[in-house]
Write a protein that binds this DNA or RNA. Sequence first.
DNA 1: ACCATATTTCTATAATTATCGAAACGTCGA
DNA 2: TCGACGTTTCGATAATTATAGAAATATGGT
Lengths: 109, 109
Amino acid sequence: METEQAVDALASLAQEHRLSIFRLLVQAGKEGLAAGAIAERLGVPPSSLSFHLAHLTRSGLISQERQSRTLIYRADYAAMNQLVAYLLENCCAGNACAVDLLVSQGACK
Amino acid sequence: METEQAVDALASLAQEHRLSIFRLLVQAGKEGLAAGAIAERLGVPPSSLSFHLAHLTRSGLISQERQSRTLIYRADYAAMNQLVAYLLENCCAGNACAVDLLVSQGACK
DNA sequence: ACCATATTTCTATAATTATCGAAACGTCGA
DNA sequence: TCGACGTTTCGATAATTATAGAAATATGGT
């Protein structure tokens, strides 16, 4: 992952509503969630939500699929993993590293 | 790490100059770098640089120590690891995870 | 005390981003 | 084909963030 992409992805997550959206979608898993369902849970007006969904989509962290009248959004785990990998590469540089910490904590399974 | 802190840290990194600063400081290690040295390498005017350093400091990702006339900045690895841990907890949720990927790649030692 | 150096804070301005109502668009069912 | 539904796009405005010169602060050397 290149720096510009990383900045885009970070900017997508660096906003309360968008981070909440992303977390919801991660929880929702491969089923994903309709825009309306997200709006309902977060209490964000439709046009504002749409703005944030578009932001996340542009940066590649989520994807969109039309299912008849509703639009289903899903977290893109690969993109998120790439972002985390980028951060780890740029934060480890031979120093103590989050990976060891997380593995020892049994995070992620 | 709480969501508000995570948003702050993400916002700190979601800016070209600040991400560059952070990467430089990670590379520099515990020695750290003086503000002037950073300014020189990045070609950012002093007052702008100061603005970004303050931003990173506020969010806890870097620390400041005065050494006579110069101010030394250092990356705070613990803070960065906490951020990455937050992201992994919120991106894994039982799914394929960056940690395994990175361990198998031998990232971070 | 004074001057030079390193850096910040102040201040104003420009640029970007967020908010959200209203209008438009795509899709379905009658 | 018409109306209802789910959602986006448009457009105008508010809020936040970035930029950088100039002035101020802190420190050390003479």
